[in-house]
């Protein structure tokens, strides 16, 4: 078994008395798209910036490809292409100059690929950065970063400020990167994006990693909601693994992993007036940890 490309062990970052990242332990294997979820201030960007060696950890360790992220930052950066959450480019340069700069500043830069991506995203490279809209600047930064063939892509909210068409194209390019063997850490507020492209997702809350979820596992999980006419009878032993939740007076929700038939069969024997079946989805998972925040429009994706 190969070692994970990214690994953190009790990684902690404090600013005075404020703990921005609290004993975070995770491992990202090679070739995976790993999602990071959490509201503003949950510690996503602190985690990514610590991985980049921009911040010295208060405690714990962070390694990429076995290299210490802080002490061996230069070697780590040779393996990473990083898009910051608020990517600011050199205002005096035009698009061509920006791409040339980023492809020539590092040995694994690939200008023809950058130009090809720019064409795919219909980017006007002749315009000066200072005269570009926020969305165009984001697109330019994305092209500059995605063209680099580093083993690890770290993308902090890459689709913010992008129109839906470009957003879909960017997600497609990220998936292509995974197919080409690159590993991706993808931080976003948009649940649907994470659900679409990620293999696993970590949920952060107040600096702590509170949940790790494999998306394939989540896709197998369903939630069956039923309105019962009477009281809920005890579940038979064959439904022992099914999670039951009462919602209001008559509605009961059953959360099941895998086969739906045993629950549906059992329900058919009860006095049920209404049944709804839906996949559990990332939103349900997210709501467990961020019940108030999840009602925001952006988080519904």
């Amino acid at each position: 078994m190969t070692s994970p490309l990214v690994a953190t062990e009790n990684l902690t970052k404090c600013y005075g008395h404020f703990t921005a990242l609290d004993r975070c332990t995770l491992a990202v294997p090679r070739g995976e798209i790993f999602g990071l979820l959490g509201p503003n201030g949950a510690g996503k960007t602190t985690l990514l910036r610590t991985l980049m060696g921009f911040l010295r950890p208060t405690a714990g360790t962070a390694t990429i490809d076995g290299l210490d992220c802080y002490r061996q930052a230069r070697e780590v950066h040779a393996r990473v292409s990083y898009l910051p959450g608020d990517a600011r480019l050199f205002r005096g340069m035009d698009g061509h100059q920006v791409l040339r700069f980023f492809q020539s500043v590092r040995p694994d830069g690939d200008l023809p690929r950058a130009l090809e991506l720019a064409e795919r995203l219909e980017l006007d490279l002749s315009r000066q950065v200072a005269r570009c809209s926020t969305g165009m600047r984001q697109k330019l930064a994305l092209v500059a970063i995605l063209a680099i063939k580093a083993p690890l892509l770290i993308l902090d909210e890459p689709t913010s400020n992008l129109d839906p068409t470009t957003r879909a194209q960017v997600l497609h390019i990220v998936q292509e990167a995974r197919q080409a063997g690159q590993t991706v850490i993808f931080s976003s507020h948009v649940l649907s994006e994470i659900e679409t492209i990620c293999d696993r997702v970590a949920v952060l809350r107040r600096g702590q990693l509170v949940h790790l979820q494999a998306l394939a596992e989540l896709k197998r999980q369903h939630r069956i909601e039923a309105r019962l006419a009477g009281d809920l009878p005890p579940l038979p032993p064959q439904l022992a693994g099914v999670e039951v939740q009462r919602n209001g007076d008559q509605w009961v929700a059953f959360r099941t992993e895998g086969d739906l038939l045993p629950v549906l069969h059992w329900l058919s024997e009860q006095q049920v007036s209404d049944v709804r079946v839906r996949p559990v989805g990332l939103q349900t998972v997210y709501e467990q940890f961020h019940p108030h925040v999840a009602t925001g429009a952006k988080l519904h994706g």
Partner: peptide, 14 residues
């Protein structure tokens, strides 16, 4: 201040 250090410091240079 301009925010450009973020991308500069992410390059494989000391």
């Amino acid at each position: 201040d301009r925010g450009t250090m973020e991308l500069l410091a992410a390059q494989p240079v000391s």
